[in-house]
Computed example of a mutant assay.
Amino acid sequence: MYQEERIQAILEYLKEHQRVSIQDICRLFEVSRDTARRDLLKMDELGVIIRTHGGAVLPTQTKEVKEYKDRLTKESGEKQEIGRFAATLVKNGDFIAMDASTTVQYAAENISAQDIVVVTNSIDNADTLSKKEKVTIHLLGGILDPKHRFLYGSATLSKLADYHVDKLFLGACGITSSGLSFPHEEDGAVKREMIRRAGQVIVLADHTKFEHQMFYKIADLEEVDLLITDKRPSDKMMNELSDHGVQLFIVSEENNDD
Rank of each mutant, 00 (worst) to 15 (best):
K191R: 10
F182N: 14
Y216K: 07
K236I: 11
F210R: 00
K209H: 08
L226D: 06
V190H: 02
R196D: 12
M194S: 02
Q200K: 15
R197M: 07
N239V: 12
V246C: 03
K209P: 02
R192N: 13
K236D: 10
L180V: 01
P183A: 08
F210S: 02
L226Y: 04
F182L: 14
D220I: 00
F215H: 08
L204A: 05
R232C: 09
R197E: 01
A189W: 00
D243G: 10
Q213W: 08
F182Q: 13
E185Q: 15
V224W: 04
R232E: 14
A205F: 12
F215V: 08
E193K: 12
I228D: 11
D206M: 10
M237H: 10
H207W: 04
V246L: 02
P183W: 06
P233A: 14
E185Y: 09
G245F: 13
V203Q: 10
M194P: 00
F210D: 03
E222N: 13
L180W: 12
L204M: 14
K217W: 12
E223Y: 09
R192T: 05
I202F: 10
D187F: 01
I202V: 14
D243F: 00
H212S: 14
E223G: 00
D235P: 08
A219S: 12
A219R: 06
F215Q: 05
Y216H: 12
M237Y: 05
Q213I: 00
A219M: 01
V190K: 03
R192G: 05
Q213E: 11
Q200A: 10
D230S: 12
H212Y: 09
S181M: 04
H184L: 14
V190W: 01
H212C: 07
A189E: 13
D220C: 09
R192P: 12
R192Q: 15
A205L: 13
M237A: 08
D220F: 00
I228F: 09
E222I: 02
K217F: 07
K231Q: 14
A219N: 10
I202G: 08
E222H: 14
V190Q: 04
T208R: 15
G188P: 02
E185G: 00
G199V: 01
Y216T: 12
D220K: 13
I228T: 13
A219V: 02
G199P: 06
R196P: 00
R232F: 01
D220V: 00
M238K: 11
D187G: 05
R232S: 13
G199H: 06
L227F: 05
R196Y: 09
D225P: 14
D235N: 08
M214T: 15
Q200F: 04
Y216G: 02
P233S: 15
Q247N: 14
